[in-house]
């Protein structure tokens, strides 16, 4: 606990120092301060944007939603663009950390497919422009798994005892079990949750380990047959090891989205909107999605990307597989039951 407090104090101090540095050189000039995930844009796009608009882009990166949140929370860091994930967006919106976007300045918004508009966390389409999206699924090694992978059931198959990696996070792990049982991954029914928990405990002896980020290295290194991963991590891993493949189970899964937002108090809001419009340009969006490997919400861009990429189910899951998918909702205080269930799964002896 004191560690957490310490970290918060430390980052607040760092933010203060940084905001001094930033604010001292950002007054009214033709600039744009962008705060994005590491390795989450084709940098040529920035160069193009600068060349086309004459706006100078100052680009910083973060490695987790929480880092970004901590840096923006004091309200003194003058970024004009940030890229939170869905659940973090909801939190930031509720805490009044965001500016409404003037969509009149973003004509290219029309290219964003309707299914990525008016999400449950931004029903009136005021703050959030979907940047990339993806799924959670099974990354598997085709040399070890020869049968078709199309169901969460395979993670409970004793054939693969000791070869399975589960995701070390309560929502994601429980979502796997809930979807397998045919329940909603946002269930607030304690019985459903308990059943899902018991299934995870039953599965525990088959699991090699519950891992976060290191699972990519493990799968690339051939340390296991399959793992529950985010599609973006799957794309990355497949790029490193060609015998890996990714599947979205037919029972459905979690869909996640990262969106572009304008933090409260942005000094270069118009430039920010110009930048969002630029990113929504089909050609630019296509170039970007090809570079990063994440799925684009831009229907114009989808027309432009190569056929084999478009047909790759890792990049673009079939409509059937998406039919049962859900996004995470904020569960309010019921999240405690999820936490408890997950703690019990971890504490269970195997």
């Amino acid at each position: 606990m004191n560690l957490a407090v310490f970290k918060r104090v430390l980052s607040a101090v760092l933010v203060l120092i940084l905001s001094f540095a930033v604010s001292s050189c950002s007054g009214g000039k033709n600039e744009l301060y962008v705060y994005n995930w590491g390795d989450y844009i084709d940098t040529e796009i920035l160069t193009e944007f600068e060349a086309q608009t004459g706006i100078k882009v100052i680009y910083d990166t973060f490695d987790s939603n929480e880092t970004m949140y901590t840096k923006l929370k004091p309200g003194s860091a003058s970024y004009d663009i940030a890229v939170p994930s869905d659940y973090m967006f909801e939190k930031m919106k509720n805490e009044g950390m965001l500016e409404k976007i003037n969509f009149d300045n973003i004509p290219n918004y029309k290219y964003i497919a309707d299914r990525f508009k008016g999400m449950h966390f931004d029903t009136d389409n005021e703050y959030f422009v979907t940047y990339m999206w993806g799924t959670v699924g099974i990354l598997y090694n085709t040399e070890m798994v020869t049968e078709p992978v199309d169901s969460w059931d395979i993670l409970w198959d004793e054939k693969y005892a000791g070869q399975i990696f589960m995701y070390d996070s309560q929502r994601d792990a429980l979502a796997t079990s809930l979807k397998r049982l045919g329940f909603s991954l946002n269930t607030t029914d304690l019985n459903e949750l308990t059943l899902a928990k018991m299934e995870l405990i039953k599965q525990k002896p088959l699991v090699q380990a519950y891992l976060g980020d290191p699972v990519k290295d493990k799968m690339i290194g051939g340390e296991g047959a399959m793992a529950v991963v985010y599609s973006g991590d799957a794309m990355f891993s497949i790029g490193e090891n060609e015998s890996l493949a990714y599947a979205v189970p037919k029972e459905g899964t979690n869909i996640w989205m990262d969106g572009i937002v304008i933090p409260k108090g942005a000094k270069n809001k118009e430039n920010a909107e110009k930048f969002i419009n630029f990113l929504c340009d089909p050609a630019i969006a296509a170039k970007n999605t090809e570079y990063i490997g994440f799925s684009t919400p831009n229907s114009g861009a989808l027309e432009l990307i190569p056929e084999d990429m478009k047909n790759d189910p890792t990049y673009w899951p079939s409509e059937e597989s998406l039919a049962n998918c859900e996004m995470f909702f904020d569960l309010g205080s019921f999240i405690e039951e999820y936490d408890k269930a997950w703690t019990e799964v971890l504490a269970a002896s195997n």
């Binding site: 606990m1 560690l3 957490a4 996070s169 309560q170 405690e336 999820y338 936490d339 408890k340 997950w342 703690t343 971890l346 504490a347």
Partner: peptide, 11 residues
């Protein structure tokens, strides 16, 4: 367990 309560599940 303690680490998880503080850093992941916030209990």
């Amino acid at each position: 367990l303690i680490e998880d309560q503080f850093l992941n599940v916030y209990n």
